[in-house]
Every structure is written in C-alpha cells, then in structure tokens.
Design a protein around this nucleic acid. Sequence first.
DNA 1: TAGTACATGTAACAGGTTACATGATTGA
DNA 2: TCAATCATGTAACCTGTTACATGTACTA
Lengths: 182, 182
Amino acid sequence: MSLAHAILVSLVECPQSGYDLAKKFDGSVGFFWKATHQQIYRELTKLEELAWLIPQTIAQVGRPDKKLYSLTDLGRENLKIWIAQPCEVSPNKEELLVKIYAGHLVSPKILEKEISRHQQLHQETLAIYQEIERQMHCGSQCLPETLKYTYLTLRIGIKFEIAWIEWCEEAIAAIGEKIDFN
Amino acid sequence: MSLAHAILVSLVECPQSGYDLAKKFDGSVGFFWKATHQQIYRELTKLEELAWLIPQTIAQVGRPDKKLYSLTDLGRENLKIWIAQPCEVSPNKEELLVKIYAGHLVSPKILEKEISRHQQLHQETLAIYQEIERQMHCGSQCLPETLKYTYLTLRIGIKFEIAWIEWCEEAIAAIGEKIDFN
DNA sequence: TAGTACATGTAACAGGTTACATGATTGA
DNA sequence: TCAATCATGTAACCTGTTACATGTACTA
C-alpha cells in the first residue's frame, strides 16, 4: 500500500488535486516513486473512503473545477505510524542491466552507444538535481527542519546519478578495450 | 514484457527449471530484477506457447520431475532484438526515501535507527558483491567475454551500495546535529 | 486552427503479491 | 518428528499501464 503513502507524504506540505499530484510525481517525490494520473485518481478515491483525506471542490474561472485533497487527522496519524515502521531495502529493477548481463549476444558497438546515451541522460538528471541543490542553500545558512529531509533525499539522488555516470564511463572502456579492472 | 526477457537472459547460460530460475532471481540477475516463483511459472507457460522456450522433462530419483527450459532459436533471436533496442532509465522506487521525505513527522531517533539499520543491510550486500568480485578475478587475468558483462553489472551494484552507505552516514549526521552541507 | 495546459475520469489488460495446495526426501 | 529443500502449480487480489473519453481556455 505504498502509493497511498507516497500520496499522503505529498499532501503533508499542502492540499493538492489529483492533477497537481500527477505532476508532482514527475518531480520531488517522483524522484523515488512514480505513478500515472490514473493510479493517483484511483488511490485518492480509496483514501477518501478511508477518511484519510477530505476533498474540497474549488470552482475556478475559465478552468474546470478542481478537487483539492487535504490530510485528515486520521490520515496524518496513519502516515506517522507508517513512517515509524521499519521497511525493507526496495528491490531495484534496471532494464539496462538485464540487457548488459547478456550483452555478449549483441555487437559491442550497440552496447557502447546505448550506455553512452544513458550516461547523457544521467548527466542531465544530475544537472537538474544540482540546480535544485544550489537553489536550496543559497549562501550557507542552515535549512529549516522540513527542507532538511527533502534535501537528504536530493543528496542520494545526486549520489546515484554520479554512480551511474562513472559506471557508464567504466563500462564503455571495458567493452571497447580488453580492459582489466584493478 | 520485461520479466520474460529477464528469464530469457537467465536461460542463455544454461537450461533451467522454474525452480532454478526462482532461486537465481534471488541472486545474479536477481540483483536488478526480482520475481517470485508464481510469476516465473506463469511467464514460462507464456514463453513456451510463443515457442521461445522448449521444456524437457527430466525424471529424477527421489525428487519430483523437473521441467528444464531451454531457449529456442526463435527465443534467442527475439532476445537479441530486444537487447539491441534502446531503453529508458528505469524509475526507482525507494520506500525509505518516501519516509525520509516526510521525516519531520516522526522523532529523529526513529529515523536515525532506521537509517542505521539500512546502512548495515547495505554493508552486508556490499560484502557479498565484493566477495563475488574477488572470486571473479583471481590474479589479474582478463575475463572471458561472457563474464565481462556479468562483471560490469556487479560493478554498478557495488557503486550503488557504496553510495547508500555513504548517504546513510551523511543522513545520520545531518539528522543528529544541525549540520550544514558544504 | 492546431496544439498545449488544465482537470477528471472509465475500461481493459498486464504485471506483481499473497495465500493455498500437494507431496517426496533429507537432515537435525 | 519437525523443519527445510526440492518441484510445480491454482486462485484471488492488488498494482500499474495503456487507451479512450470529455470539455474549456489560452497561445502560437
């Protein structure tokens, strides 16, 4: 039941509509939890039934109405309970690595090209993260409590992207030449 | 259709039963693609229907029969085609990070304890990977073609674990003290 | 006038999880 | 005798994906 929790986490900050959440799941929380708008609407309905959320319909000029969802006390309590519970290390699924694992079946050139493309994608993501990081601590003042945690999640995002970029370089070298790692 | 491909990748090396695959998905290919035995059996049935695999029933003494699946030429061709196709960066879902994101809702001590527990889990995984790495290149001879690719996937596994371990340390420090990252 | 952003939804299907079911053998 | 390992499967359910559907308003 973790998409539900990701939605609750997202709504802690401020009330949002399904549409808002769908966009947010393409950034911030979305860096480590993905969901489509269909999933989100389905989940919002469930959470409303549980009374963990309450909707408020907002009329807008020249726009369709929007249903702003906020956490109820019950929802907030349940979220706290969930956060305090220990969790497993999430399994990672990496399509590229499945391909690399049987990489000897295709030409090294195809692999090199694909890895190099991924390296570029990771470099772009890293640039985005670093820009957010730069904006988060202008000067060198301490961050407020809530931002501190957001910042921590950003930090690991950066570390992962750097790991990918370094690996891509290493992999391209290893595939091209008959390199020995030492 | 990626579990199918992960199974094919796994069967490139040697014919295996559903049971063998289920165990394997708990190591090697399983480091970047997880699946339960129920999923695997369901998928094997589909792949047999497509004639990408052929089963061979092996009678055993004192054990139930096993159905060893091998790749057909068709299966191998399709696998090659799939590997050669470009793919997206796989989205990662990290439950711990969803929790950290709203970490201010619970006591810092709970978070520190949980992060420290995760650090230990990652240290254990790292130790396993490093042991495999050690076994893979005894001396400093070059690896054969197929092992080279396995080795590359291991390398990124190691990088990820190191990134996690470093981050856990950083996070614990940041939560405890009023630390400023610079 | 065509495309994008806003805003919410249904339906069908594919993929993943959990529980249950069976039954032999091996080792503590 | 109890648990673990070997070996395969069904059924129900939940989660995630893709396609379709609707309608306004703004901008190029």
